[in-house]
Simulated scan of single mutants.
Amino acid sequence: MSKLRDQDIEKKLLRFPGWEYYENAIHSEFEFENFKDCFSAMSRIAFECEALNHHPEWTNIYNVLTISLSTHDAGGVTDKDFKLAEAIELIVEVQE
């Protein structure tokens, strides 16, 4: 999978209003009602990551989940990152 050009990334981000591109990755933050809901979403996201064989850099502090996506083998953002971002959005949307 090849690294996307900056202008292609910015164009794709128009479909992902809660995501930003900086430091060679796309980033988002999600806030949940409580830790249990956040951890539940993380568990569901983990299954999707395994299915796609693509894993995020993420942190969790209480009810907040911060995610960064980049394809390390390609040295930046690829379509694989946007495919995972889309899956994450669907999972988080169902949680709400």
Rank of each mutant, 00 (worst) to 15 (best):
F32E: 03
F32V: 05
V77S: 04
E10A: 01
S40D: 11
R15W: 00
K3P: 00
L52G: 12
G75Y: 02
E10N: 07
E86Y: 09
N63P: 02
F16K: 06
L4W: 00
T71K: 05
P56S: 11
Q95I: 06
R15K: 13
K36A: 13
L69P: 02
S28M: 04
G75R: 10
S28P: 01
Y21N: 08
T71V: 03
N63I: 04
I9G: 07
L4Q: 07
E96P: 00
A46F: 05
N53T: 12
L13W: 01
F39P: 09
N60C: 09
E57P: 01
R5A: 12
H54M: 10
L14V: 03
K83F: 02
H72A: 06
A74Q: 08
V92M: 03
E96Q: 12
E20L: 01
L14T: 14
T66Y: 01
F47A: 14
I61M: 13
Q7H: 10
F82Q: 04
E29G: 12
E50Q: 14
K3M: 04
F82R: 10
F35N: 13
P56G: 09
K11Q: 08
Y21L: 05
M42Y: 05
D81M: 03
E20G: 07
E89W: 01
L65I: 00
H54S: 05
R5G: 03
F35D: 15
Q95D: 04
A46P: 13
A85R: 03
E48I: 01
A87T: 10
F16Q: 06
V94Q: 14
T66N: 08
S28N: 13
L84I: 03
L13F: 00
F47M: 13
E31I: 05
A51G: 12
L13Y: 02
E93R: 14
H27P: 02
I9Q: 05
A85P: 02
E23K: 14
G75F: 01
F82K: 09
F30R: 06
R44I: 04
A51P: 05
F16E: 04
R44V: 01
T66H: 04
F16G: 04
W58S: 08
K11G: 00
F16A: 06
K83V: 11
L52V: 08
P56E: 12
W19I: 04
L69T: 08
L13Q: 03
A87C: 12
T78S: 15
D6V: 12
Y22M: 02
Y62P: 09
S43D: 11
C38Y: 01
Y22S: 12
E29N: 10
L13M: 02
N34K: 09
H55P: 13
L90F: 05
E31H: 05
I61G: 10
M42R: 09
A51M: 06
L52R: 15
S2H: 13
I67F: 05
C38H: 03
D37M: 08
F82I: 07
N63W: 00
W58V: 06
V92R: 01
H54L: 10
L84R: 07
S28D: 04
E20N: 13
E33K: 14
N63K: 14
V92L: 00
S2C: 04
